Simulated assay, not measured.
Amino acid sequence: MSRSVFVSHAVKDRELAAQVVALLEEGMGVPEDEIFCTSLKGHDIPAGENFVSYIKSQMQGPKVVILLLTPAYFESKFCISELGAAWVKSHAIFPILVPPLDYADIKDVLLGTQVVKIDDDISYNQLRELLQKEITFTPKSQTKWDVKRRSFLKDIKPILADMPGPSMVSASALEAKDRQLEEARVELDEYEETVQSLKKRLAAVEALKDKAAVAEVSKQFDDTGLTEQLDERTNEIAEYRSTLRGTEMLKYALSAFYGKPYKINRFEDREVFDEAARFGFINGDDEPVWSQRHMKSLRAKLKELGSFISENEGDLGKQVDEDVPLEPENQDFWEYHYNI
């Protein structure tokens, strides 16, 4: 009988596979007997079973196949067979891309498939949601999930640092690198044009005396759209999920800044807010410490965002889709732009 989760990986990557399995068990709560991973005792092929036949049986009906895509993976005939079987049988797959491989290295293999990088913290929430949707199990608390996920990202760093590159380069890869080199040359020429434009802009600004005229000149030279500027600002704020050691702490800080109700759940989130207190994000009365350097920086960026949206509200409303929220003090804005 197939287990619910199949971790497809190369033998050379057993150490990395072990970290992924630990994340599934200790961070998410997936039961040990629901995970098949050939490199780990308790998850591997039972004694007496035929290696090839047993793997074939396990590929018949897993709910989710996790692909650990490394250079060694694509040099393994077994791994390529597992990838092909998952594709043919239309299993739910979660491809994890491991450096030094990049998206360009796998686009011909997983064309049109969403792939996440192994060190992308937020993407593992997608894996957690996929498993909760496909498998019946009792999930770990949000706090345990956040703690284990951070530990996982820390523990894989030395493994990734020693990750070898592919032992050979294909002709298509070489051609791709040549194309990239040519594109880089073209881009460099475009940058040179941009530099010359910026020099002209600086000279024009220096010749002005009043702010209105400066703003007018800036508008003439600025080729960045308002939606891109909005994304840049909200992405900077979203990064505070990591800076403040968790999603809940960022939600708390946003609520405090905008005067929205928020009650700390000391049962579920005690570890998160104890850590926040140790870092000085909050005081002993669970109040925000805006003088702390990260909190101070966050508040400054929130003020900048508010001013930007207020000053460009009309034009932004015309450029973004109707379903994109533009009220930074509301929960729907936080969910859409900050993924919290």
Results as ranks from 00 to 15, higher is better:
Gly280Glu: 01
His43Glu: 07
Gly280Ala: 10
Val52Ser: 12
Glu327Thr: 10
Leu67Ser: 02
Asn339Gly: 09
Asp332Asn: 13
Lys177Thr: 04
Lys157Asp: 13
Gly84Arg: 04
Thr227Phe: 14
Val21Glu: 09
Phe78Tyr: 13
Ile264Cys: 07
Lys296Glu: 02
Asp274Lys: 05
Gly306Cys: 02
Val214Asn: 02
Thr138Tyr: 03
Thr70Gly: 03
Thr143Ala: 15
Leu153Arg: 03
Ala72Gln: 09
Ser167Cys: 01
Lys200Ala: 09
Asp121Gln: 06
Val21Lys: 02
Val20Ser: 00
Lys296Asn: 13
Ala207Lys: 14
Thr136Ala: 14
Leu174Asn: 10
Arg14Met: 12
Met59Lys: 08
Leu111Met: 02
Lys56Pro: 00
Glu187Leu: 04
Glu248Ile: 05
Pro261Tyr: 12
Gln114His: 12
Asp222Met: 04
Gly112Ala: 08
Ala277Thr: 08
Pro99Ser: 05
Trp145Pro: 03
Val88Ile: 14
Glu311Ile: 11
Glu228Asn: 14
Leu153Pro: 07
Ser123Asp: 07
Glu75Phe: 10
Ala203Arg: 06
Arg266Val: 06
Lys63Met: 11
Phe152Gln: 09
Ile340Asn: 14
Gly61Trp: 10
Asn265Asp: 15
Ala238Glu: 15
Val116Gly: 01
Asn283Trp: 02
Tyr191Trp: 12
Phe78Leu: 12
Glu25Gln: 15
Ile237Gly: 08
Ser53Gln: 12
Asn330Phe: 06
Ser197Val: 14
Ala85Ser: 08
Ile135Leu: 00
Phe74Val: 09
Glu236Ser: 12
Phe257Gln: 14
Leu326Val: 15
Ile93Ala: 01
Pro261Arg: 10
Lys211His: 04
Thr143Leu: 03
Thr38Asp: 15
Lys117Gly: 14
Val11Ala: 06
Glu75Trp: 01
Ser81Ala: 12
His91Phe: 09
Ile106Phe: 07
Val272Cys: 05
Asp119Phe: 14
Phe51Ser: 01
Pro328Tyr: 06
Val289Asn: 14
Val116Cys: 03
Gly48Cys: 15
Lys251Phe: 05
Ala213Met: 04
Leu16Ala: 11
Leu131Arg: 07
His9Phe: 00
Ala207Gly: 08
Gly280Asp: 11
Glu268Trp: 04
Asp146Pro: 02
Gly246Ser: 08
Tyr103Trp: 02
Glu239Asn: 04
Phe279Leu: 07
